[in-house]
């Protein structure tokens, strides 16, 4: 089964479209995440949190702030989160459960360009990347299929 990634037309990021659900706070929200293979964990950005009506004032605060993209922000913990993804197989959604998802609060530093939410190793470790390359564009997928590589 494969999930298609999208090349962001306005940034260098590779994006994945998803649906975020959290029953505890009634959150049901379409959103997009940038793929960040260098990040150990997924993070919901502040603009995503506002768009998804995440009640930051009701969430527990993480022990320390997070610095990302030159911005420092308090981090909050959204518990028991489900991320859903459409797959290349019609009618089949991939469901990823997270015991908690870090959510960025408003930035402490001077306002800069907003950073996207990211999916890190806690999500990506279960997948392999496949790129069908062309000179311009091409398509990129993440898959859980057993890909045999001889390097």
């Amino acid at each position: 089964m494969k999930i298609e990634c999208r090349r962001d037309p306005g940034s260098p990021y590779l994006m994945v479209w998803a649906r975020l659900e959290c029953d505890a706070y009634g959150i049901r929200c379409g959103t997009e995440f940038a793929i960040d293979t260098g990040s150990p964990m997924a993070i919901l950005s502040y603009p995503q949190a506002v768009s998804c009506l995440v009640p930051l004032d009701k969430l527990a605060k993480a022990l320390k702030p997070i610095r990302i993209g030159g911005v420092v922000a308090d981090a909050y913990i959204l518990p028991d989160v489900k991320l859903l993804f459409r797959t290349t197989e019609r009618g089949k959604l991939f469901a990823h459960h997270m015991a908690h998802l870090y959510v960025l609060g408003p930035t402490r530093t001077q306002m800069q360009l907003p950073v996207p939410g990211i999916l890190g190793a806690d999500f990506l470790d279960q997948f392999t990347f496949i790129s069908f390359s062309k000179q311009r564009g091409g398509r990129v997928f993440i898959t859980d299929e057993d890909i045999k590589l001889s390097l």
Partner: peptide
Amino acid sequence: IAIKFIYAEPPAIVLTPQ
């Protein structure tokens, strides 16, 4: 609703959090 920030120029932001 689909919501997205429209960058005027491609951002040179290192995402990996610390």
